[in-house]
Structure formats: structure tokens, C-alpha cells
Design a protein around this nucleic acid. Sequence first.
RNA 1: GCGCAAUUAGCUCAGCGGUAGAGCACUAUGUUGACAUCGUAGGGGUCACAGGUUCAAUCCCUGUAUUGCGCACCA
Length: 885
Amino acid sequence: MLDKTFDHSIIEKHHYQKWEDSGLFAAHPKSDAKGYCIMMPPPNVTGTLHMGHAFTMTLQDVLIRYHRMRQQDALWMPGTDHAGIATQMVVERQLAADGNNMTRRDMGREAFLEKVWQWKEYSGGTITSQLRRLGTTPDWERERFTMDEGLSNAVRKVFIDLYKEGLIYKDKRLVNWDPKLQTAVSDLEVEHREIKGKMYTVRYPLEDGSGSISIATTRPETILADGAIAVHPDDERYTDLVGKFAVVPVCNRIIPIVADEYVKSDFGSGAVKITAAHDFNDFEVYKRHKDKGIPLINLMTADGHMNENCPKDYQGLDRFDARKKIIGDLEELEYLEKVVDHVHQVPYGDRSGVPIEPYLTDQWYCNASVLAKPALEAVRSGKTEFVPKNWENTFFDWLENIQPWCISRQLWWGHQIPAWYDEDGTVYVADNEAEAQAQAGAGVKLKRDEDVLDTWFSSALWPFSTLGWPNKTPELDKYYPGDVLVTGFDIIFFWVARMMMMGIHFMGEVPFKKVYIHALVRDAKGQKMSKSKGNVIDPLEIIEKYGADALRFCMTAMAAQGRDVKLSEERIEGYRNFATKLWNATRYCEMNGCNPNFDFTPDQATETVNKWIIGELLNTKKGIEQHLEDFRFNDAANTIYQFVWGTFCDWYLEFTKPLLGEGNTNDALKQETRDTIGWVLDQILVLLNPFMPFITEELYESIAVRPKDALLMGQKWPDYAPELYQASSADEINWLIRTVTEIRSVRSDMNVPAAAKVRMLVKDASEVTVARLKTYDEILRRMARLESVTISNDVPKGSIQTVVDEATLVLPIAEIIDLDKERERLNKEIGKLAANIEKIDQKLADEKFVANAPAEIIAEQKSRRAENEAMMTKFSTALKQLSAA
RNA sequence: GCGCAAUUAGCUCAGCGGUAGAGCACUAUGUUGACAUCGUAGGGGUCACAGGUUCAAUCCCUGUAUUGCGCACCA
């Protein structure tokens, strides 16, 4: 027998161990079953589980468990990502905190990497063990890490192949440079922050002494690297100046004045300084005016200090100090004309939090625009489909305007670029040093490129590198392309788009057929969870407190398409209560001997309530299937919730109480009812299992003796014969529900004490109703707290009356009735009905409506009018009788 | 500036061309051994605003407002 209350903490670990030991997580590439594959977005190997993970992993696990139960050969491919910058930063911080003030450069590459590997070994299992707490069932045996040997081989091969195809190349261009981390970062890793800064207007004297030209800038320190001044070609104010030269204040360099359409005449002075090595737009101007002799001057070191290209007294200054200094100098030299407050966007590194510097460096690039074309085409043609569809626009916009992808990073943690240089700087791209040496020729001294690849470069290969590529494997055959990728919208660019590009290029086929994009998890107020805000809800604490099932179910129920998940603890508590409800219902079933009977099949049910609940279960199962098919997780969750609580517990178990009681001497019926209850309960556990795996597994084990080692998670998703649903049963039971609800409602309205048992007379009952009243006599008496149910057209004095369908229900309660109150209630009912009728009459009187509306709508209005009319008559009669009393 | 989404009950959100829904919260109440982590009943909405299409609009279209999120930015 089950304990009186459900304690999730007792059951969770125990079941997970059993599941994992059972081998049921494993995919079987050689089996004949149809494959179903989800590639888990690999979390940061040294990370810990946060709500975003819990959310996405829950949805994936629901899908995987569901498809596994449907007898598909499910592969949920798990793994972790080395997360280059993030992980390296953590270890560097640890070094700094050690007290020795060591930096990675002090340590040297090899020793540092050893440290990172140690850290990976130490904390690498954290997140995967936390995923186990959540109850997820990926094929752990296949777990991969982006820096595994196999995956690293794939990375090198892709690099080499793309290099040979000319799609990877080295180039000197401006990159987003993070002076703190001292690496290039992707423009996706740059966040623009609105900053209240200043705009400085600076006067540049003309070289010929004939006057001056003024420009505006927010970054006066870059004046030292100015290479030109640009004006709009049509700007008449400056026509005469184009072709002349100006003198850069402070450093006195002579620079040309050029005309370029990029300049907006109506902004500032209409003249702009061109600092080609420190601004993306300026760099473009520079390229268009190469013939004008514009110098390309880099004035900063990699860590954001002023370098040897600056005047002596600037060299070595931090970039922000240099700004202060130059403002002073300009003022002193009387070049500074104006300073105004100016709000503008400044790029910040999203990891380092410092302003990003456009910086001129040599980097490796991938020609993304070539790779993007087939990826775009694949989505346009529907080979890959986004759900919800509107994300396709985001995908298109980005890929259509894609820039060369800078794939090199000045980090140590990651895949080192497989390129070697000889002393002349000639590059040899090869799988290993020996091959590079062979290319270069014996005896040539080679040095390997020190940089590593962008983490997303290896993640882009994830859908096939994890399946054994470049080897031809049965896994690749069977599971590529994957069925669905489940991920958040925030990494459509970072990851989804790149997997599409690489997957199509190297596999000749899209990496997944569908991309389900979910929203972000926020706190109850809708704010993004972040450590600095302190509003982080830790999934593990929630699991401790409410159970993994409650968290999972909450996540699923909140996963409506296109909306963020605002997570509140109350909501989770609500679903914990749902688990308790199921627990107690099961306990009740056990107490009444309603355990699954394996000889019972639902077609054996004869009693209407039993046939009804079976039919309702059919609809529920169909609903869940449809909703999961459509990735409408919230609807799927609500469908089963509603069935379990609102249908099974609230009504069916109550309906069957009389049948199980001593009053029922029909043993066959009693047994059928027990069997039906046991069967439906068993089915509930199966249908609910993908959502709430722990409690359902526990109950499944508890309610029946099963074949040895039969785990619920390994059971087959049911198939029901459609004829098990019978509309006639539904009609009858819906009448019963209506009747019980109506009596309860009127009792409550009239303050009839809950404990009071009252008689009920039924007036104007049809034959069908008479029969039903007889059939459900006991249920009615029990559920509506009635002493007796009698067919009678008498209305005793002091009765309250109400109407269900054609019949009038009369409750003679002279001793407790409040006549005024009852009069008020009846008048209210009549008023409502009259209003309905009036509305319908208006419609029916509208010629256009009658002429244009479909016949069934008109018929519906007419029959609704008749119903309302009939009810109004009955209530009016009741009112008259009350007044006469 | 461009784009996307949202605006429905006190809160969080579903929904839908033909009688407005859920959970939580709230109010009242507590009857039978599954369940007070519960039962029963109830109150509560001009479906942001303005136009349009339609016999009919909360739903479709257009515009406005507000909010959120992307993308791009003028030095």
C-alpha cells in the first residue's frame, strides 16, 4: 500500500538508477525500428544546470520518451561543449585567485592547458549528473565532448577541406577585439550598450593655412590615428576643400580631405574624420580611397594601451586615459571647439564587459556567404522547417547579410588551428605537423599557428561529428538528419545557422528536419534570470523542494509557442499538487482493489460510466499525440492534466463509488468496474510518463505485479480501437454531470447546508430522463446530497427549482428556504435567458444574416432560441409558484 | 531607423470568424476513509484603441499607442 502522502525525494534517485541500468536509453543503429534522433545542444562542460537547460532538456526528454514508447529507435545524443572563452576565463580567474598572481602567459601554454583539463575533469560531470536529477534519458553511453579525439579529427578535416576549397582563408581586416581577453570575438558576442558620452567637435587646420575644417567625434583619442577627413561629395560647403589637406591636431600629420557618400551632411559638421584602423565604417571609406594615400594607423596594443605610433607622451597610456589626455591637449592648443553630451551605442564584449575595440589583425575567416546559400535554400524549400515558423525570417535576415565568419580566437583552450608557417610566413594547412612538414619540404623550420578555432566551429559539426563522421558509420546512415533540433532563439545564429551550413556542405543533407525554437525562461516578473540580479531560480533547489516531476510538468505546461516562460514557484507548487492528487487517486484505487487486471481489455466494458471513461481516455491520448506532433507542449500537458484531475478524479472515481460499494450485488459489474478503473489508471501512467517519469514509474511498480524488470519507461505507447469511443455514453454521462453540477450549484446559491440531505422531485422528465434518473439514482443521491429522487409533477410549497434540459428539478426545502433570495435567483435566471433570446431575435430578424449565414448556423440559433425559451417558461412557472406560496 | 512578437479575469497565460477559457489568487462553504498539497460552489473580462472587410470580428486587414526582443546604426 502506498504511503499516505507522496514524497518525491524518496523515489527519484532510485528510479533513475534503474532506468539507466536498464539500457533503455540506448539507441540501436542496427535495429529495424525507425530511427528518431534529437541532438542535444551540448552545454558548457564545466557549467552547472540552470533553468534554461532544465526547460530545453525537459522538452527534449518528453519528445524522446514519447517516441521511444512509440517503438521508435530513439537516439538522444548527449554531450558537452568545451566553451572556449568561458572555460578559459574561469581557469584564468582561478589562477588569479590563487595568490601567486600567475597569468596563463606566465605559465605557458602547455602548463595552462593542463590546468584547464584538470578543471574539466573536476567539474565536467556536474551538469550531466544534474541532468540525471531532472530525469532525462539521453544515450549516455554515446556521450561526446567537443574536444574528444574523434570530434577534434572532424574539426581538422573540415578546416583542411574548406581551406582547400578556398572557403577558409587568412585575411587582415578589422575585427571586434576584446582588449581584456585579448582575442577577436564574433560580432554576435558584442552587445551594444547605450552610453551617455560626449561628442567633441575638433578643428583641423588646413595645410595651406587657408582656414580649417571641423569634425565631430566621440572617440577623440583616435584622432592620433586619423588618416583622412571625409565629406559628402554633394556638400557644397566643402566642395572647395576636397582634394586639399588638413593637419591632425596634436600629432600634426598631414591627411587628405576626400569625398565619400558614406558621410551624412546633416549630421554634426558634415565632415568626419577617417580612422581606418579603428572603425568599421572608416575602414570601408579607406578601401574606397586607397589611391589618395590614406595611412592605416593602428595606435593601440592588444591590451588597449597606446602604442609606438602615438606621440611619445601618449605611449603606454590606457585608452581611456589617453582620451582624457587628448581632450586636455586639444583644449590647450585651442582645437577643441565644442563638447556636448551625447547618448550613443558603445560595443561591449558580452563576456568581458569592456568596450570592444575595432582592431586590425590577421585572422582566419570562413566564407560564410557561400555556405549560407544552400542553408537558406533548405529552409525556403521546407527541407528544414522552423517551429514556430516566424523564426525563419530571423534566420533568413541573418544569412542573407552574413559577413565573413572570423573563426580564429587568440585563446589556448580549444582546437588549435592546423596550420604551420615557415620562416617566410608561408602557410601549410595539414592534419598534423608531419604532413605540414612534407608540404613544406624536409628541413624547413615550421611553427604552428597559436590560435584556436571559435567554439561554434566545432559545435557546427555536432550533428555529424558525434555520429562518427568522417567515417561512414551505421549511426550516420540511420540518424542523420536528425528529426528535430530543440533550442532557444538566442542561438539561431550562433549555432543553428552554422550547423545548417556545415551539415549541408559536408553531408549533402540538412542536419535536422525541424527546428523547434522555444522561448527563454524568465523570473516571475518577466526579467531575465541573472546572477547579478540575484533572481536566479536554481532548478536543483526546485527539484529538492517540489520534485523533478513538478518542475518538468511546469516547464512543459508553460511551453506555449512564441512566449517567454515566466516561472513562478507557485506554479510549480501547483503541479506538485497534481502529483499528489495522482498519488492519492492511485492509493484509493489500490484500497479498492482496482489494480490492473491483465486479462481485461477495454472492449469488455459494458457499463456506461466505464465505456464513457474509456472514450474520454481515447480522446485524451489522441489530443496528446496531436499536440506533441505540433510541438504544442503546453496543450499536451494540459490535456493529460485535465483528464487526470478534472475527469478521472473529479467525476469517474466518484461515479464508480456506488458500483464498488456493498450496495452493488452484481459481482460481474463490480469486477468490470474495478478492471476498468485499474486499466484506465494504468493507461494514465503510460500517457503521463513522458511528462512525469518518476511518480508514474513508482506507481506503475506499485499497482501491479509485472513481468520481471518491466519498467514503465520501456512500455509501448498505447493504440486503442477507435470504436471504444461512444457518443451515446458521452451524452448520457454529460447529462449526469450537468445534473449533479446544477443541483450543487443551486444548493450552494440558496445556502442549503452542505450536510443537509434533501428530497428531489423531477417534473416534466422525458422517458430518457426518467430512465437515467433511475440508473443513476445512487450516484445522484450521493454526489448531490439528495435523500431521494422522485418523478413527480407536484411542486410543494417552499421549493427551489431549477432546470436541466427538458426537466425541472424541484427541491422542497420549506424549512430553510429564503423566499426573497429564491425569487431574486429565479429573476436573475429569467433575465439572463431573456437577454439571450433578445440577442438571438435580433440576429434572426436581420435579413442579411438570414440570407448569408450558413444554414447550420441559422438552425443553431433557432434551436438555441427554443431552448432558452423553454427554460424561461420553466423558470417563470417556478417564480409564479413561489409567489403563490 | 528596420523587423518580429505581445496587449484577453487581480496575476500568469491559453484560445478562436458564430454563447469568452485554464491555473493561481479571491469569496463562501466543509458532507460519505483517496486526497485540506483537498472537496463543493461563487464573483470577476467593451478580449489595448481607432478604422475597415464580413450577415457576423476578441479572432482577418490597416493604422495608432504601449511593452518586450532582435538587427542596424550618424562620426
